[in-house]
Design a protein around this nucleic acid. Sequence first.
DNA 1: TCGCAATCTGAACAGTGTCAAGATACGCAT
DNA 2: ATGCGTATCTTGACACTGTTCAGATTGCGA
Lengths: 222, 222
Amino acid sequence: MTKPNARARPSHRVPKPEAGYHHGELQEALIAASEAILAEQGAEGFTLREAARRAGVSPAAPSHHFGNAQGLLTEVAIRGYEALAGALRDAASGRQGAREKLHAQGMAYVEFALKHPGRFQMMFANKRLVADDARLAQASRAAGHEFEIIIAELVGGTAKEAKTAAAAAWSTVHGFAKLALEGKFGPVRSEAEHREIMTTLNRVLNYLWPVGSARRQVQIED
Amino acid sequence: MTKPNARARPSHRVPKPEAGYHHGELQEALIAASEAILAEQGAEGFTLREAARRAGVSPAAPSHHFGNAQGLLTEVAIRGYEALAGALRDAASGRQGAREKLHAQGMAYVEFALKHPGRFQMMFANKRLVADDARLAQASRAAGHEFEIIIAELVGGTAKEAKTAAAAAWSTVHGFAKLALEGKFGPVRSEAEHREIMTTLNRVLNYLWPVGSARRQVQIED
DNA sequence: TCGCAATCTGAACAGTGTCAAGATACGCAT
DNA sequence: ATGCGTATCTTGACACTGTTCAGATTGCGA
C-alpha cells in the first residue's frame, strides 16, 4: 500500500469475527451473500464486489473458489434449480390425479418466481452463467423432469406427444411468470396484488389445461 | 489524458465524415447503433459508450437527447414493440379464421424473438428501461392488443374470459420464446435448429389451442 | 448580424470485474 | 514438533462502465 495504514488489520472480515485470515467457509458465505443480494436488489443488482464485501473478504477472493462472477452465479443458479425442483415435487405430492398435480405444479412454479424474483431471473440469464456447465444443465433438466413425470401420467400418448405437452406446460407457466415479473399483468408489490396475479394464473391454467377430458389432439402437421 | 495526444482532432466523428460538430441526426444514429449492438452482442452486450462510439460521438452526447442509458434503451424498446405489433398484425392478416390467425400470431411472436434476440430481451428487461414511460407502456399494450383482437374473435365468451384467454396465449408464446432463447429446447444457432424449434412450437400450439371446437371452459373457482 | 439556446466535447469521478504478486495460515510429511 | 508446500486471501493495478459539469462549438431566430 502506498500510505501507511494506522489500523492493524484490514476492515474486511470484521462482520465475521469468528474467521481468521482464512475464512473457512467462504464458498457458502459467498453463495449466501449472493442470494441475499438477489433477494434484496434483484438480478440486475448483483455485484461480485458487493458479494465479497458481505462475506467480509476482498474483491479478488471469490476468484479462487469460483473462477469468476459467472462461476459464483452458476452455483447460485444450480441451488435455485434444486429449490425449484423441490417446490414442484412438493406441490405434486400434495394432490392426487395427474391434472390436479399439474395444476398445483404450475401454481408452485409461478409462486416460486414471484417469491424469489432475483434468483429466478438469474437462473434463466444464461449469459451471466457458465452456459455449458454440466451440473447446471443437469439441475435444470432435473427441474424440468418434475413436470415430465406428471405429464407422462396425464397424456396417455406417445413419448413425442408427452414431450410436446411438457414443453407446452413449461412454456405456459414460465411465460406467465416472466410476464408477471415484468408487470405485464399489473404490479406485484403488495400481498394483495400477488394474490390477484395468482388467481389470474388459476384461470389461465383452468383455461389451457381443463380438468377431466383426456385431451384428444389433432394430428400434428409439421 | 495524461500524456499529450499527437492527433489534431478526436478520433470520434471520423466514421461519419458528413457530420460536423453538430451531428444533426444523433437520435436516430444512436438508436440505430444500439439496435446494431443488440443484434450483434445481445442485450447484455449493450453499452452506452459503445453506442456513442458507433455514432461517432463522445460518451456524454447521448445524455442530451435521452437523459441516460435507460432513456435510449426505452426508445429502442418502443420501436421493438411497434415492430412486434406489426409482425403480429401481418401474421393475422394472412389467414382467415380466428384459430388460424392466432396460430400464425404465435408463430410470428416466437419468430420475432428468435430473429431479434437482443432486442426482444431488452423489450422485457424492465430494470434497464424507464419503467413508467407512458409511450413504452402504450407500445407494449398495443402489441398485446393484437392478440386480444383475435382472442375476442375466438372465444365467444365474456370479457373476463377473453382476458383470461389472452393472458394464456401471451404466456404460452412468451414462455416458449424465452425458454427457446435460453437454449432449453436445444441450441438455436443454425438455421436448421431454428426450424426445429419452430416445428416444436407448432406442435405446442396445436396441443394447447386445438383447431375447431369452441372450447367450453369449466367454471373458474377462484 | 448578433445573441441565445441547442448541441457536443473533455475531463473527471465512483464503481465494476479481473489479474498478477505477494502475504498469510493450514496441514501434512518427517 | 517442526518445517515446508500449497491453498487461501490481500494489495494494487488496469481497462472498462455510466454519469456529471464546465466549457467549446454551432445553428437559428430576432
